[in-house]
Nucleic acid binder design. Sequence first.
DNA 1: ACTATCACCCTCTTTCGAAG
DNA 2: CTTCGAAAGAGGGTGATAGT
Length: 554
Amino acid sequence: MNFKLAVDAGGGSGATGGTDDALNDGAGGGGSGMMLHVGAGGGGGDDEAATESRLSRWPGDEETSIKEPAWRPLDIDYLHSTSGSKRAGKEKVATPESPAPAAAANYFKKSDDNAVASAAAAAVSAGGGNYKLFSELEAIYKPGSGGAGVAQTGSGSGLTGDDNAILEPPMADLPGEPAADAPQLNTSETSAGEDAAAVVQPQPQPSADAARRKRKRRRQEQLSASASFFERLVQRLMEQQESLHRQFLDAMERRERERAARDEAWRRQEADKFAREAAARAQDRASAAAREAAIIAYLEKISGESITLPPAPAPSADDISQDAAAGVGKELVPYEGGDKAPGSGGGGMLHFSTSRWPKHEVEALIRVRTGLEGRFQEPGLKGPLWEEVSARMAAAGYGRSAKRCKEKWENINKYFRKAKESGKKRPAQAKTCPYFDELDRLYSRSSSGGVQSSAAVDTNANAGGSNVGAGDDAKGSSELLDAVVKYPDVHYGPPGFVFDREQSEACGGGNEGREDAGDDGNDDGDGEEDGIGKGRGGDDQEEEGESHDHDDDH
DNA sequence: ACTATCACCCTCTTTCGAAG
DNA sequence: CTTCGAAAGAGGGTGATAGT
């Protein structure tokens, strides 16, 4: 949309009609463009004075004889010059030079007087008259800058729709750009008016060239000012961005330092914790060693024999398996000289045994195995369970692989069944007697618990047979078995110590139960049978044993 | 020398889960 | 559902060892 603000210098024909968007004070005809026509009354003018200054229509929009009306560009400077005598005088000078029509001359003449402005303002304020343009202009210019209206009047951007309007405020702030020059800025926006002026003034005049050069120079100055302004703006923007970037980097660096500090603190904390745990472990080991030494000393004192402990660092299950894979009979097991025949090996020293299971080791195996009986009853692979048995044996100081444990368990069961089946009366000093009793209890319990094994059947069938008294008191045997089964891990410890004492107590050894902590207690078959026969209330322990079993059963 | 005990190995059967 | 393979358990054989 092109705005044209023009003053109709030529008298309109007064033609009516037309529905244009022009801001006519009369019923001026429309046009393709939006124009501000300053006219007295258009076709509707009555008096001659009205014809001198009035808004006219676009050329060609009406049947006017004046095809090219003498449009004079509405110089905003001029408009505002009405408030200044200097400007008015200037225009007054230019007026005689221009071949403007008489109407324009009259207009200028009319506006020559300063009083005209006031009169026009009065007319505007009155709401009508020839100076309605001023109200329009005020409506356009005022919203932009309030009191700075004078400086803004020359922008003309509001009229032309030029985007440069947004640059007005900064331009107004530009240094070296006097506010007084602001009204001159409009000169660039009135290029169309210039054309109109060219039309009005066909013959170029020297003064017009000078004004043009002057406008061009101003435009260049304006452009240079704009360029410098933009340069400063961009520079300021870059500085701001650099500042933000520096802040960003600082923040990143600060956070990085904080993170490093946190990591360092965490590492220190972990190191301290590890050190504390290590110290606690060392203390536990020391206390355990002291306790063990005290027990050993006590046992040596009451037994009068020298007791050798199994190697402290029990090999792991993997090591045991590797040993087993390396070759049978090469496992490192605790060895008691008393169990071996004299001269067969150094008593009390560790050696690669002949893979024979010492009695206490077999007992430990039975305890461990019976402790896991419930899990062995469950369907599933037994391999892991035997691994656990091996691990528990290792924890007790016996290095036996899972395979060896399994084989030994099967063997002792085999012997047990064979012995039961044979029906022969076994000597009380038979080596198998100690854990035969254990197995008998186990199978008795299993049979009472619904798991009827062949061995248990055989055991019951041969209750009065070779294993004297083993099945005589099934109830007492079962209760004792419960005590043994429920506390499988409690008895872990030095060979032949805890379990034997427990066994002696269970057997009702009475006066010599605790004292006879050695191997003699178990070897005494009669005493063992008596103990089973007497039985022992194990209900309370059974209740406690359940939880204990679960605790250790991991 | 004989017997009992034990470790080790092997075979057979059963069970169970995966795969077709 | 059938087949197959792995695992577990039972059972037997054999040789070594210790005790009688």
